[in-house]
Amino acid sequence: MGRWEPDARGRLAKAALALYAERGYEQTTVAEIAKRAGLTERTFFRHYADKREVLFAGSGELEELFVRAVAGAPESVATLDALTAGLDAVAELFADRREFARRRHAVITANAELRERELIKLASLAAALTDTLRSRGVAEPAASLAAEAAVAVFKIAFERWIAPAEERPMPELIRESLAELKAVTSGA
């Protein structure tokens, strides 16, 4: 029996991404991921429901953090400022994860099923933010428009952040994308 090593979940994620890059998502099996990580299939399924979830495991945490920050913003702040608090909070999740995010994104964009799952994740985030804004007293359609705009800012900033030559931190790119949205909507 081998020596126990910590961070099984992280090892499985790294092994999966490496195999997806080498062989492709469709051609990679759970057994191969577990073997590469030095673990069993049973251990894999303790951490992930299926091989797709390796790529989307952090979605719930991202949504929860974003919603909690927006909900926790002072009631006196404007809707966009509350959403900015949420954007700032999620930007911190990405510190020191650029290479993982780049590899993850490459796997997702190469597979139609995974692209669809990514869109579902973003739609779920927008719906949760819309509900949060409604609970803050923002009426429709403003709540939906603002939530969708915040998700668009996040998506654009993320895509810029993972670009091959990009080195700026995620919070800076979020602020820049938010400023560009404000400029567009103000007619500047």
Rank of each mutant, 00 (worst) to 15 (best):
R42F: 15
T40Y: 05
D50S: 10
A16T: 03
E61T: 14
D50M: 06
L19F: 07
A49N: 08
I33W: 05
E22I: 08
T29G: 08
E26P: 11
T28E: 07
A8H: 14
H47E: 09
Y25T: 00
Y20A: 00
L55F: 06
K35S: 13
A21S: 13
S59I: 10
A69M: 10
R23N: 12
E53T: 09
H47D: 01
A34V: 02
E32K: 01
E75M: 06
K51N: 06
F45R: 03
D7N: 13
T29Q: 02
A8V: 14
A18K: 14
V70S: 02
D81H: 09
G58I: 02
R46T: 12
T29E: 07
A71L: 15
A69H: 05
A37R: 05
L19Y: 06
G58Y: 10
G60C: 02
L19P: 03
L65S: 10
R42N: 11
R42G: 10
A18T: 15
S59P: 05
R42K: 12
V70D: 03
V70L: 02
F56D: 06
K35L: 15
E61S: 13
G10S: 01
Y20G: 03
K14V: 14
L39E: 00
R52G: 12
T40G: 08
A8K: 12
D7S: 09
A49M: 10
